[in-house]
Each structure stands twice: as C-alpha cells, then as structure tokens.
Simulated scan of single mutants.
Amino acid sequence: MSEYMPEFLPKEVLEGLELARKRDSKRRSRLRVRTELGVYPILKLWDEGFTVARDNADQLRGLVGIYDGARHLYQALIVASHDDGFTMSFDFKRSTATTDRPALDYDQNEDAPVALLPHH
C-alpha cells in the first residue's frame, strides 16, 4: 500500500482511495508501455523500472517499448518485481534509449556530405 494511507482505515476506503489515485495518475501521465498486445499507462517511471495498474500487469513481460506520448524513449527487457495488490512494478533487465538517427559504429570523414540531392 502507499505510504500516505493510514492502516486504521477500512479496506473498502483504502481501495477507493487507491482507485482514485490511479485514475488521477492515468490522466496526468503521457507515459505508456507498449507491447505486441497493447498499450498500458505508466503510473510511475524511474531509472531502474516502472509501475502500472495491477489490472494491466498480466499482459506485460519480455521486450517492451516505453513512450512519452508518440515519442519512443526506450526499448526495454522487463521482469516483474513487486505486486502490492493495486499496482505492479517492473524492473529493467536491459534498457536502451532510442535515437532519431542510426548508430555510428564506424569512423566517418569530417567532410562527408550531410545529405544527398537527387538528379533531375
């Protein structure tokens, strides 16, 4: 459970508070995790992993994409790490930042052309 929820509240009240918190987080966040099966809102993202709603967690495993809106941030290999009953946390086994250009794995000349013009 979250640290801000007192333990003396009835279970139904705690569940209602957690549902309201999740709804609010989903509205604010543009972060998403994408798999072959679908796209799921990320409630919290940190350097070593992320958290999603528990009801979305059954479909998540293996290689996924992490997006901020339409922008692809990372390609990651994930593993489930913590289930608190409301949310599920996943750790990155591997996370690779995406770029908008191909990797340069060779020595490029300083005077190499930036672009080529077509012949007309």
Rank of each mutant, 00 (worst) to 15 (best):
E36S: 14
A57T: 11
L77A: 10
R61C: 01
R101H: 12
A53T: 09
R101S: 12
M5G: 02
P113N: 04
A112I: 10
R28A: 09
M5H: 02
D47R: 10
G85Q: 06
E18S: 11
P6W: 01
K93Q: 14
R21Y: 11
A115Y: 15
T51P: 01
P102G: 14
F86Q: 03
I42K: 02
D58R: 08
E36Y: 09
Y4F: 01
Q59N: 07
L116Y: 12
L60A: 01
P102Y: 13
Y106P: 02
M88F: 08
Y106G: 04
V52W: 00
D83R: 00
K44V: 01
V114A: 12
L63H: 12
G38M: 08
D24Y: 15
L17E: 08
E18W: 06
K93W: 05
A57L: 03
S25F: 09
G69Q: 14
K22L: 15
N56P: 03
R27N: 15
D55R: 05
A57N: 05
L43F: 04
S2E: 15
D100Y: 09
D105H: 10
D47S: 14
N109L: 12
A97D: 05
S89E: 15
L9Q: 07
V13Y: 01
A112V: 14
L17H: 00
K44T: 09
Y74R: 13
T51I: 02
S2K: 06
K26C: 08
